[in-house]
């Protein structure tokens, strides 16, 4: 009688949604100054939708923070400004101006240093300047091997650094939010989502995303399998090389000089999902930056990269 399971089962996606809403509510309840790191990508869009649901009928009770390297795709910035205005959320944009003035640019100083200055350093500065004690982000554990081990509440020391060997155990849905001043916690409400889950959610929830995810003819430098977007004037061209119009899309969004496109005809969300099901390659592969050296994502994270 009482022990027979008469409660209906939730689907995979509904379970993930409930878990993420629970996490967002915990953060809003327990931290003094939480902030949502908004990267403009599809995962960020999901996170914003989940936050709307978690606090409905109230507004999202924390600001969004975008770390702008100035090398993002133009369409990303247009989408960011449109979407956040439409949502009525507070947006903070932070850029490491000093590094840019000193000439930070991936081809001049290398992708590792460029990311270190424009992303990692800029993020740490923005968190410190804003006095934020909790920074939520859309990272998922299925993205990359070192992420697979990261907690939902990921503790950072006073220098913003992650110590993978000294993570707090995380049991049930109870989270340890205790920190000293200057320490902070990164929180990943989408930890248990996969890329496919995110796309399904975008489909069923009709969540707006940056048009760069959809296939269309775009000017690209074609180097073997690699398609390099030519938004920035400093992309070095080979002798006699000319951009070609290629029907392609972005599988993940980063800075335009370091994000490759993939050849694709997928111009709707259902087509993207079909393409993903057939795909045999992981989504971060087109991020040039992850390939600097074996285990490079883990090294970035130890230093404070998101």
């Amino acid at each position: 009688m009482v022990y027979t399971q008469c409660v209906p089962e939730l689907s995979h996606l509904q379970l993930l949604e409930a878990e993420s809403m629970h996490i967002l509510r915990e953060v809003a309840s327990e931290f003094q100054r939480p902030v949502l790191l908004y990267s403009i990508g599809k995962d960020s869009s999901c996170l914003v939708r989940l936050a709307q649901k978690a606090f409905y009928p109230g507004p999202i009770p924390f600001p969004l923070l975008h770390v702008d390297t100035s090398y993002k795709f133009r369409e990303m910035i247009e989408f960011r400004d449109f979407y956040t205005r439409q949502m009525g959320v507070r947006l903070i944009v932070h850029t490491n101006r000093k590094a840019l003035e000193d000439g930070a640019q991936p081809f001049a100083i290398g992708t590792q240093r460029c990311c270190g200055l424009l992303k990692t350093q800029a993020l740490l500065d923005a968190i410190r300047e804003g006095g934020f004690d909790a920074a939520m982000g859309g990272a998922r554990r299925d993205e990359e091997r070192s992420r697979a081990k990261e907690r939902i509440y990921s503790f950072r020391d006073a220098h913003g650094q992650w110590d993978p060997k000294n993570q707090r155990p995380e049991l049930w849905n109870i989270f340890n939010n205790r920190i000293e001043s200057a320490e902070s916690i990164r929180i990943f409400p989408l930890s248990n989502w996969t890329e496919l889950d995110v796309w399904h959610y975008i489909h069923v929830e009709k969540i707006p995303i940056v048009p760069l995810y959809f296939a269309k003819e775009r000017p690209m430098l074609v180097r073997g399998e690699t398609l390099i977007p030519v938004e920035q004037p400093f992309i070095p061209m080979l002798d006699g090389e000319q951009p070609k119009m290629v029907r392609c899309r972005m599988r993940s969004l980063g800075c335009s000089p370091c994000t490759g496109a993939i050849r694709s005809d997928a111009d709707t969300v259902p087509k993207i999902i079909e393409e993903l099901i057939a795909a045999r390659r992981s989504e971060r592969e087109n991020r040039v930056i992850d390939h600097d050296q074996d285990g490079s994502m883990e090294m970035k994270k130890r230093e404070g990269y998101f």
């Binding site: 089962e9 689907s11 995979h12 996606l13 379970l15 993930l16 399904h200 069923v204 999902i273």
Partner: peptide, 11 residues
Amino acid sequence: QYVATERKKDL
């Protein structure tokens, strides 16, 4: 149909 089965999939 695919999305429908996908949404019924449990975890």
